[in-house]
Design a protein around this nucleic acid. Structure first.
Lengths: 341, 341
DNA sequence: GTGAAAGCGCTAACAT
DNA sequence: ATGTTAGCGCTTTCAC
């Protein structure tokens, strides 16, 4: 009988079971300091036999070192964020740091709460989506005394460091491409999300560039909730019947763009000659659609990788005061729906 | 100047700033015990002014209470898991418990590692996908002395508690439906994932039921990696040209099913008369496809909700020894691709 | 209603 | 190469 199965084992249990001091047991379990092979073996055997799982809480308190990196994102349902996470994990896997994810649902109050909660575990760094945060959140991040990387967006002033793309510029580039292709009557569809700042900035960059060319958005439609694919379909149907003279549709994300594409193809619309379409993100899903949708890669994985690298470097005491904003360049893929034959 | 900005604030700082003992400050910050309104106010002001963030590490060590629930899943890219997570979050949001997610990539060794890592933070419970774990993982879970809920699958013996659906039964039901609809030459497409036990069990239930009706899978194809939609398309093209006499295609997930559907429609195949198709999961995406794909709901959100409820109840010291396995019933939606006109 | 003392299970720093 | 001594920042427990 291994005594009370209710009480988790402690270093002391391993120490007694192996006849080695707690301190040496600790050293073996962390591969720290010199320990003779014989002692090491004894300790490892005992630990394994007992099924000892170290208590990181006590360890972290004693060493004031916590190998956690807080990653705060708006949503997991968006596919964009799991991909950023994949980039982060890939980098952290080779270190002793570990990502811990918090989700805000695009709500500033929830962001504040999640951030507070995570900071109270004293992580080694924070990676947080966006540049827009409540004043309280900004204060917490500044006070924390740990590296902070704001990701996805570079249109604004970072608290510390920032890695992403310029969404205004992304909107602008897409607008330029559409104008260059000769389209004139342009409709826009997107999320009804006042709190999705990146979608808003893309829209701004887009409309401003059109305006400079003397073009105004001819029609627009916003949605919220539900299946994005279905919404893309519905909105497109509605817009096409309402404004039959449109020659281009710009969607704020690939999912609704795909819905629109499927709908238009079913209706026998000639793409891209009669109507051109484009979206945003470059999600993998698009590879399987009947036509390659014009879109713009948001560099999701790359953003995750770069952000994680910055945290890692800072934790090694490296580079701090240089380049506080890393701007990546999204690639525009015209696919088969943007340039007229 | 708020002194050294490098050192995080402690209770003591708040104590000094407010002229109240550390103990009382602690009580105020946790709403524990009686504190006069005046004192409470003083403390809250000081804490806010300083920007104090409590140190949960110290708190957890002192109280041996950690409000974390470890959630261990194979992947975030699958969409299935974010939905389970949503169910879990929904329930935990009303409690003081918090989910912490770990990802295993379907690898038992990684599961073991992630589990060890998470248990070392002494969480209040574990929710883990699947019933298949390494012996070491099972031992850890048993030893942990905390509630453990294995989710998604009920075909096996849980360590503690288990919530999910029977994937064997799901495969069987789909087979029965297909047979009842009169299809005879059936092809199967799925992931090349020896470690996805649930997909395997569905396949087993499916083939066994066909076998009982004297039907054997006429053709099959497996894939790995890449865009599932594109893979569904490719595999379907290959299979149709290889086995032109097939009258039904069963896909192990909705994404490849959707790819197959799009391909067949483009080829002018009459669905479901010439060829019927069905998949698995009931993902929201399907709502936007040209045809409503036959599928089976995996009760993802519901599983998350139920699992979280069990953890919460156990943490309140409630119900423990009753029903250790909760089996939910997936609904089959025939959509427009299964029953012949 | 408030405070003082004693740890929680580890690790840093210093012996030996 | 190994052991000893002090805490880490909180909460528990018990006094007042």
């Amino acid at each position: 009988m291994t005594s009370d199965p209710k009480r988790p084992l402690t270093l002391r249990d391993v120490s007694e079971a192996s006849g080695v001091s707690e301190m040496t047991v600790s050293r073996v379990l962390r591969n720290k300091g010199d320990v003779s092979a014989a002692t090491r073996q004894k300790v490892q055997d005992a630990a394994k036999r007992l099924g000892y799982v170290p208590n990181k809480i006590a360890g972290a308190l004693a060493s004031s070192r916590v190998n956690l990196v807080a990653v705060i994102i708006p949503s997991l349902g968006n596919m964009v964020f799991p991909e950023v996470l994949a980039g982060i994990s890939e980098v952290l896997e080779d270190t002793d740091l570990q990502p811990v994810v918090g989700v805000t649902d695009y709500l500033p109050e929830k962001e504040e709460k999640v951030l507070f909660e995570m900071l109270s575990w004293r992580p080694s760094g924070v990676i947080i989506a966006g540049l827009e945060h409540s004043e309280a959140s900004r204060a917490m991040l500044r006070q924390a005394g740990i590296p902070v990387v704001e990701i996805m967006d570079t249109d604004g002033e970072p608290i510390d460091t920032c890695v992403g793309i310029s969404h205004r510029r992304a909107g602008r580039k897409m607008a330029e491409e559409i104008i260059a292709a000769g389209y004139q009557k342009i409709g826009f569809m997107g999320t009804k999300m006042p709190l999705d700042h990146r979608a808003r900035k893309r829209f701004e960059g887009f409309t401003r560039t059109l305006a400079k060319a003397g073009i105004e958005i001819a029609d627009q439609e916003f949605y919220s909730g539900g299946s994005a694919l279905a919404k893309g379909r519905e909105m497109t149907a509605k817009m096409i019947s309402r404004s039959p003279d449109l020659d281009f549709l710009y969607y704020s994300n690939d999912m609704i763009g795909a819905g629109g594409l499927l709908y238009l193809l079913e209706q026998g619309v000639a793409i891209p000659d009669q109507i051109g379409i484009a979206a945003f993100n470059g999600v993998e899903l698009l590879d399987g659609l009947p036509r390659q949708l014009a879109t713009m890669d948001a560099c999701r994985r790359e953003i995750g990788v770069k952000a994680a690298q910055i945290i890692v470097a800072r934790n090694l005491g490296l580079a701090s005061e240089d380049a506080t904003t890393v701007t990546l360049s999204p690639k525009l893929s015209p696919g088969e729906t943007l340039r007229r034959g």
